[in-house]
């Protein structure tokens, strides 16, 4: 499989404080992203996700290590021609309109014709901003800025798109729309490197995941390989039974409006609970088997570091 992005033994530290003290941010990151994948780069705040991204883009000079984008060194123009980037909390030139802004950036890309407003309008349509093309960016909401950021990221039709927290701060509808756009990138054959700490989003759209903690990759691989399919416990919701009777059968974690919610870890105990509900003429509201989630894996691993 062709490799879109290759990072080997990446180290980066920063000098902080009045009396400069070296703080290690990245401690030997090694990963590979294959062509056409959506790669989730997951980590808590301050783990070094944005630093890794900025190293790939040449905005930060690594102390040590190698980065290759489609077999080109990260700092080369060829690598940049094939890369698109959406920063976290995007802020652009607010005095420009959306189409002026995209036109300015298209003049920076050698493979694009300047003042090609037909292409710009198509891009704005893709991200759902065709109505706002003549609106100054200062009048844009957070979600609209995120969309215009996505439009500039794919302006030069890059084969690798780097997205830093693209779903952060968006409402549920906005998140779904952005997720759909990212999935469309994959359909078009683009490779997506997605930095996020929102696990649900990563779980929904990513093929491969790397979990970053304390400047190191704790685990990486295909999502289905990382998360086991085995049922960990069953969540039971019932009413009409005394909580005392349930104490030995499972772990009660909530009682709300007469409903008891408990985790049951053994099949035998689950059966006993069903019999108990029937004998007490209570109601069994739900029985939900729970497998391991990426969140469980993530929290467990980050806690270990």
């Amino acid at each position: 499989m062709e490799t879109a992005l290759k990072i080997a033994d990446l180290h980066k530290s920063f000098q902080t404080g009045f009396i400069p003290k070296k703080k290690k941010i990245l401690k030997g990151i090694t990963l590979e992203v294959g062509k056409g994948e959506i790669f989730g780069y997951l980590g808590p705040n301050g783990a070094g996700k944005t630093t890794t991204l900025k190293c790939i883009l040449g905005l930060i000079h690594p102390d040590k290590g190698e980065i290759e984008v489609w077999d080109h060194p990260y700092f080369s123009l060829k690598a940049k021609e094939k890369t698109g980037y959406l920063p976290e909390n995007p802020y652009f030139y607010d005095y420009l309109t959306a189409s002026e802004f995209l036109d300015f950036y298209s003049q920076l890309c050698p493979n694009l014709k300047p003042h090609n407003f037909k292409k710009i309008n198509t891009l704005l349509k893709i991200v759902g901003l065709e109505e706002a093309s003549h609106l100054q960016l200062r009048k844009f909401s957070r979600g609209m800025l995120q969309r215009v950021g996505l439009a500039q990221a794919i302006l030069n039709d890059p084969s690798l798109v780097l997205l830093d927290e693209p779903l952060g701060g968006l409402d549920p509808i906005g998140r779904k729309e952005i997720r759909d756009i990212i999935l469309r990138f994959k359909e078009e054959g683009k490779t997506v490197f997605l930095c996020s700490h929102i696990i649900q989003d990563i779980e929904m759209i990513c093929d491969k995941v790397a979990i970053l903690g304390n400047g190191q990759i704790i685990n990486q691989g295909k999502l289905q390989d990382l998360i086991s399919e085995k049922i960990q416990f069953t969540e039971v919701a019932l009413s009409g039974v005394s909580p005392k009777e349930l104490e030995e059968l499972g772990e009660i974690y909530s009682i709300h409006r007469g409903r008891i919610f408990l985790k049951v870890f053994e099949e035998e105990k689950k059966r006993k609970i069903i019999q108990l509900v029937q004998s007490r003429k209570g109601t069994l509201h739900s029985l939900t088997p729970r497998t391991e989630t990426l969140e469980d894996l993530f929290v467990g691993m980050v806690k270990q570091t």
């Binding site: 900025k54 883009l57 040449g58 905005l59 123009l77 940049k80 021609e81 890369t83 698109g84 980037y85 920063p87 995007p90 802020y91 652009f92 030139y93 950036y105 920076l108 890309c109 050698p110 950021g149 500039q152 030069n156 780097l162």
Partner: peptide
């Protein structure tokens, strides 16, 4: 703004 600008070629 420099981050997106310098991410271009």
């Amino acid at each position: 703004t420099i981050c997106t600008l310098l991410s271009k070629p």
